[in-house]
Simulated scan of single mutants.
Amino acid sequence: MKIAFISFEFPPDTAIGGIATYVENAALLMAQRGHQVEVFTSSPGSESLNEQWRENIRVHRVHTANRDQFSKLLLPVFTERHRQMDFDIAESPEYSYEGMEVKKKFPGLPMIVRFHTPSFWVKCLNKKYVAGNIKEKLKSMLGIKQYKKEKDKEYLFSLMADGWVVPCTAMKEVLTEYWGLDENKITIIANPFLPSKELLDIPVETNNNRISFIGRLEVRKGVTQLAAAIPLVLAQRPGTEFCFIGKPNHAPGKNGMMDDYLKKQLRSFEQNIRFIPHAPKEKIPELLAQTDICVFPSYWELFGYVCTEAMAAARGIVAGNIGGMKDMLEDINGGVLVDPHSPQEIAGGILFLLNNSFERKEMGKRSRDKAMNYYSNKVAAMAEQYYLSKIKKH
């Protein structure tokens, strides 16, 4: 197959978040399976077309830092390359409707929309967990700025697509409930993941007595509830160290930054708390090797690549039971799933893994096996068959 991935995000120039990580892994796996893969992306620095990247992947970087303009600026570059290559299939995130102009111009080219997290859902989550419920309930009662999907370009672009793919059950439920998409036409295929040798070489058995959170320090990631759980853990295991790894976002009520907020909340336990505000990708295996248990108490997570990294590292995992991490861990009993709104449950999950090292290591082994075999080999084969089925329909 000749596959075109369209994504504003792609390393290294625009390695912004999970979409970049997904496209990188998906492109590599498809190329390794013998397909011709090209990526159409952006660069804030300069334009670079027909760039040779890893695994014989060609990358076309459009010079822009404006995500809203990317779809239109991409079109002439894609048009010329499609004339040369005659792609079999294209894929785009729904986010920022990045493949819309391509689909308009080439309606006969099968276009897959792989959902990450639509903007309307991000806003819903932010309103619920950041802006304050009372204010939003008042707006709802008055009918102020109510969401209308018919005016949402991400929704309209999705209707143009030839296939819909989501990485988890929770996202499928959101799309059927809020956008009214036919659940029978939404296919669940987990995001692919190629674990590094550095992650796989970490010994299963570690006893560092360290608990780590990795990710943005923000309300939606559950860090305030984790902070409330820490005293409960230290009451029983006073020698435990907690490490917050990630860039801080706003504190609740936007009163300062989250790291300062957490330090104030935990000032009585400062000898047990450590903050690492920035950890480059290549540093993550080292940090995971120093960690026994990872805690990801997100209120919502589509597909946490930090979780797949922890799985590949065979760490003990405590994760929120809402969203994609439930799909990732539940089927293999690869971690302890908890109510992310409950500090008591979070503390209970951490203490269970601290007090049951054998079970923690067995969970870690199962998680590593899934990271090695399912998220690379099986997921890639599923995506491959899905693409072929859509090409045949055209």
Rank of each mutant, 00 (worst) to 15 (best):
N249C: 05
L262T: 04
E241M: 13
L266D: 10
G256A: 10
Q265N: 09
G256K: 10
I245K: 07
D260E: 15
K264Y: 00
K264H: 04
I245Q: 12
G239M: 07
F242M: 10
M257A: 08
D259Q: 13
P248A: 10
K264F: 00
L262H: 08
R237I: 05
P252A: 03
Q265Y: 00
Q265M: 13
H250M: 06
K263M: 11
A251V: 03
E241I: 10
G239N: 15
G239F: 01
G256I: 05
L266S: 09
N255V: 06
L266N: 11
G253C: 10
D259R: 11
N249Q: 13
M258V: 07
G246S: 06
D259H: 10
N249P: 00
P248D: 10
R237C: 11
K254G: 10
K264S: 13
K264A: 13
E241D: 04
M257H: 09
E241W: 00
N255R: 15
P248Y: 04
E241F: 01
Y261S: 05
P238D: 12
P252C: 02
P248M: 06
Y261N: 08
T240W: 00
M258I: 06
Q265A: 06
Q265K: 10
L266G: 12
K254S: 14
K254F: 06
G246H: 03
Q265F: 00
A251Y: 01
D260K: 10
G239I: 01
K264M: 05
D260W: 02
G239L: 03
F244Y: 14
Y261R: 05
K263I: 02
P248C: 09
Y261Q: 06
Q265G: 11
M257V: 04
K254R: 14
P238H: 09
G239Y: 05
M258G: 13
I245M: 11
C243Q: 15
C243L: 12
L266R: 08
D259L: 04
D259I: 03
K263P: 11
R237P: 01
E241L: 14
